[in-house]
Nucleic acid binder design. Structure first.
Length: 285
DNA sequence: ATCCAGGATAGCG
DNA sequence: CGCTATCATGGA
């Protein structure tokens, strides 16, 4: 820990695991720094570390930290709503303390737009490349972070510059989506007032945004905690655990099952299963 | 070297 | 509707 320039603020957090939350594949720009993590919340450079049930942080006030990390979510109640079965209980234990954080809508949308057919590690690489090339440098003491560039910034970029950020075929989608947001075709803030179905329909208009990415944005940026993104991992979990023996379960069937079985906090269920399986699948065999 | 990754999309029957 | 090829890039 190094709080040379600023004295840290402190906060008691009964049920929260900072490291798991930041490494569970919902947010991609936080990096280990001293004993904690350095990153940006919006345009604020933040350092945060966890010592037992205590959070120590600089760069943001307490209300922002509580909001961003969703420390107000009733986690105990949420976890208790999970179905009671062996696979779920394993994930519940392994992923204990993960919260679904409240990300700024644009950086969440843009980051998941670049996630198609990419490993979590590579999504991080892309996120950092875009932030370093187009974002603002946020310096605070020995901590350096970069903001995510606004839609207007990326809308003005050349395709070749985005390709250089290792985006591959996703570059043109990010560029076109940034332009659609920048020129007002779609108002991301207006989506907050809409139902999940209406907001999803709007997001699907954006190039490169299909149902899975739209659901990620609804869950990670718009607090729709019942929404379940079904990616390759969740499809694998569902078919191997809940459809053992069957072969070839269609995605629409998996969706139907999940919607009926996982309850009001299905998005949380999904995150706990995703984290558990992604990090233990090889060892399990 | 070959396969696969927090997918989307057009083209096909 | 359901299936398939294709789209870049890098890590295992």
């Amino acid at each position: 820990m190094n709080f040379s320039l600023m004295s840290p603020q402190s906060l008691l957090t009964p049920s929260f695991d900072l490291e798991k939350t930041l490494n569970s594949g919902q947010v991609f720009h936080w990096v280990p720094h001293h004993g904690g993590f350095a990153g940006a919340i919006g345009d604020k450079p933040v350092y945060i570390e966890q010592d037992g049930q205590r959070l120590l942080f600089t760069g943001a006030d307490e209300s922002l930290v509580v909001r961003y990390f969703a420390l107000d979510h009733p986690l105990h109640e949420i976890v208790n709503s999970f179905p009671n079965d062996p696979a779920m209980n394993l994930a519940k234990e392994y992923s204990a303390g993960i919260r679904i954080i409240r990300q700024p809508a644009w950086e969440c949308l843009a980051t998941f737009l670049t996630s198609a057919m990419k490993q979590v590690l590579h999504i991080r690489t892309i996120s950092h490349a875009i932030r370093q090339r187009f974002g603002r440098r946020l310096q605070s003491g020995d901590l350096c972070a970069f903001s995510y560039p606004a839609p207007e910034i990326l809308a003005a970029a050349r395709l070749e510059q985005l390709v250089q950020c290792k985006l591959g075929f996703r570059a043109k989608n990010l560029l076109a989506t940034a332009r659609a947001i920048a020129n007002g075709q779609i108002d991301l803030e207006a989506l907050r007032k809409l139902s999940s179905e209406e907001a999803r329909y709007t997001l699907l208009q954006l190039p490169g945004v299909g149902e899975k990415i739209a659901n990620c944005v609804l869950l990670f940026a718009y607090e729709r905690l019942d929404v379940i993104p079904i990616d390759v991992w969740i499809a694998r979990v569902l078919s191997e655990v809940y459809f053992k023996g069957h072969n070839k379960i269609s995605v629409s069937e998996l969706k139907r099952f999940a919607a009926n079985y996982f309850g009001a906090y299905a998005g949380y269920v999904q995150q706990y299963l995703f984290h558990h399986w992604r990090l233990t699948y090889r060892k399990r065999g």
